[in-house]
């Protein structure tokens, strides 16, 4: 019996490891490197109703143990994502979690309605936490009542379970989690990036053209672990944890904190083979530590 396979709303996962949205494109580039069917799932790049170019460059800046990005939800738009990207992904035996973004409620509803009809989309990830767009995005992710209302509206039209991606840029993450649970969310993914900034000493100006960006990578892991620890004790929703995961030990830590599965973000940029490597190592780790199934570890830090 597999130590790694698990069932979450809408998702039959071969293993609890998946690339995080925005860090894997739509999978095409990584398909040259390994078989995408080895992944637990794929969280595709955020999709908006209309195509978006995103922000001007520079869009990334390095920081100690992490990076700032301000891509700005660049994507080819709903129609092309469905016709080209999701269609292409059908050749792989892997459930897709479609990250849905927008500027206003109607955008989210429209994208959710259409994209949830696609066969290989097994769940939605509602992106209410992108810090890099001027309207929408994070505004929905910082006010509990707004998040709840949006979740409700998207739930009404979605044909698959809805996970809501929480922003760490709030005072009380538990309040946000409870709000989306009340709104009918089927699960939570957390955390999105922390808003940060770097200033170029030569020019005296921010490095990123967007001025601020989202911090990710190992530097944010303690924040993510703390938030998963808090939220998992206060809601009944399954949690896909993320934020700086780059080793098997990190996966174990998220699991102990209360995550059911994990997503890998920035580490894909450092080592594009990280996901299949971690999947293989995780199985080995559990065997070595006499753990029959990954779910045994869930929430052990507070149980």
């Amino acid at each position: 019996m597999s130590r790694l396979a698990l069932e979450l709303p809408g998702l039959s996962l071969k293993n609890p490891v998946m690339p995080a949205s925005g860090c894997f494109g739509f999978g095409r580039e990584f398909s040259q490197l390994f078989d995408l069917s080895t992944l637990g799932a794929i969280m595709i790049k955020a999709t908006t109703e209309e195509p978006r170019y995103g922000n001007a460059t520079p869009r990334v800046a390095e920081t100690p143990g992490g990076m700032l990005n301000a891509i700005g939800l660049q994507n080819p738009g709903l129609e092309k994502v469905i016709a080209n990207e999701l269609e292409w992904l059908k050749q792989f035996e892997v459930p897709i979690i479609a990250n849905v973004a927008g500027s206003q409620t109607e955008d989210y509803v429209q994208v959710a309605k259409e994209i949830s009809k696609v066969d290989n989309v097994h769940a939605l990830e509602l992106n209410i936490s992108c810090p890099n767009v001027k309207t929408g995005g994070i505004a929905f992710g910082t006010i509990p009542e707004t998040a709840k209302e949006l979740t409700k509206r998207v739930k009404e039209v979605s044909e698959v379970p809805v996970y809501v991606k929480l922003s760490p840029n709030v005072t009380n993450i538990v309040e946000m989690a409870k709000a989306v649970e009340d709104g009918g969310a089927d699960g939570i993914t957390m955390i999105n990036t922390l808003i940060g900034m770097r200033i170029d000493l030569k020019t005296g100006r921010p490095v990123l053209s967007n001025r601020t960006g989202g911090l990710s990578g190992p530097a944010v892991k303690p924040v993510a672990v703390r938030m998963v620890y808090e939220v998992s004790q206060q809601t009944n929703l399954p949690i896909i944890g993320m934020g700086g995961v780059s080793t098997v030990e990190d996966i174990i830590e998220f699991s102990l904190a209360g995550a059911d599965a994990v997503a890998i973000g920035t580490a894909n940029f450092v080592n594009p083979f990280i996901c299949p490597e971690l999947i293989a190592e995780l199985d080995h780790y559990l065997e070595q530590h006499n753990v029959d199934h990954i779910s045994e570890l869930k929430g052990r830090s507070w149980k």
Binding site: G22, C23, F24, G25, R28, E29, F30, Q32, L33, K45, P51, Y53, G54, T57, P58, R59, V60, A61, M67, N69, I71, Q74, N268, F269, P272
Partner: peptide
């Protein structure tokens, strides 16, 4: 350009094509 992944997945190093109406 400043790059993230180097393989086309992160969208850090994009540029505009010369012919682009949209």
């Amino acid at each position: 350009e400043r790059m993230g992944c180097g393989i086309g997945a992160c969208f850090a190093c994009v540029c505009h094509p010369a012919a682009d109406e949209t």
